[in-house]
Design a protein around this nucleic acid. Structure first.
Length: 258
DNA sequence: TCCTCTGTTATGAG
DNA sequence: TCTCATAACAGAGG
């Protein structure tokens, strides 16, 4: 589930508690720890304060007066605030206790998890292979990024090393809004297509970040894509779908001709 | 019970 | 460089 907008929401949650001392770190399931142990995580953070966190693509980075906590939410992760004493959820894997409550990393499938970098430089190295954050990509940059790719548009948009932050839902939603077929070659788009794609990306991201998710409105592709035989919200044509690079891809054959 | 599906990412074979 | 299969993991649904 978590794509750029969701992670932006988690960033806000953490940001509201920047400056508060971390009293303790509780690890309920070491299966989400990546490259750090329970002991190491606690020792590095206890007594420190989270500073203002930042997000790059689907990564959330929280510097804490030296070490940098790095969270990746995979398909099912989240970060949420809970007042002291609230019962633990079975999928709560790690909790950072502050004075009035705690931040909880909840994740059913544990596909990604919790990293710890020694400092900002090391955190940055983890991000070195990522493309620019999708919110920062200009129209010109988008053209440059896609022009050299032989992959399909859908595959290129969800490739984090090309553009960071777009997941399965966002990529389909953006293509649908731009009226561009996701199966087309990324390098085959003309200037008009790229204009539309960039406008759609801005609009979809702006609305999604506001909602802290890709909003499942019935006027959006995301709102109907999981219904069997769903009609296109724009023209009523039954939506098409197939797997592309292992991901279910949905589009409208009328609005998005190949 | 068994099988398939699912919003992510990394890896290796071809 | 790209596609495809697979794996990590856990739950829902047929």
């Amino acid at each position: 589930m978590p794509e750029l907008p969701d992670v932006e929401g988690f960033r806000r949650v953490l940001d509201e508690h920047a400056g508060e001392p971390i009293r303790s770190v509780r690890v309920y399931d070491t299966g989400v720890l990546r490259g750090v142990g329970e002991r190491g995580l606690g020792d590095a953070l206890r007594g420190h304060r989270f500073e203002h966190p930042r997000r790059h693509g689907k990564w959330l980075l929280a510097p804490a007066e030296g070490p940098v906590l790095m969270l990746h939410f995979g398909m099912t992760g989240s970060l949420s605030w809970h007042p002291a004493g609230e019962a633990r959820h079975p999928h709560d894997r790690v909790a950072w206790r502050l004075d009035d409550g705690e931040l909880r990393f909840r994740d059913m499938r544990k596909l990604q998890g919790v990293h710890l970098a020694a400092d900002r430089a090391q955190a940055q190295r983890t991000l070195d292979d990522l493309g620019p954050d999708a919110l920062q990509v200009t129209r010109r940059r988008l053209g440059e990024l896609l022009s050299g790719r032989r992959a399909r548009l859908k595959t290129a948009l969800t490739d984090q090393s090309l553009i960071a932050g777009l997941g399965n839902l966002l990529a389909d939603e953006i293509c649908w809004r731009a009226r561009v077929n996701p199966l087309r070659g990324a390098a085959d788009l003309d200037e008009k297509d790229l204009d539309a794609l960039h406008r759609a990306m801005r609009k979809v991201l702006r609305d999604s970040v506001r909602a802290e998710r890709v909003p499942p409105r019935d006027t959006w592709l995301t709102g109907v894509r999981d219904e069997p035989e769903a009609p296109c919200p724009r023209c009523g044509t039954p939506l098409s779908s197939r797997r592309v690079s292992g991901r279910r891809t949905v589009w409208c054959s009328t609005c998005q001709p190949s």
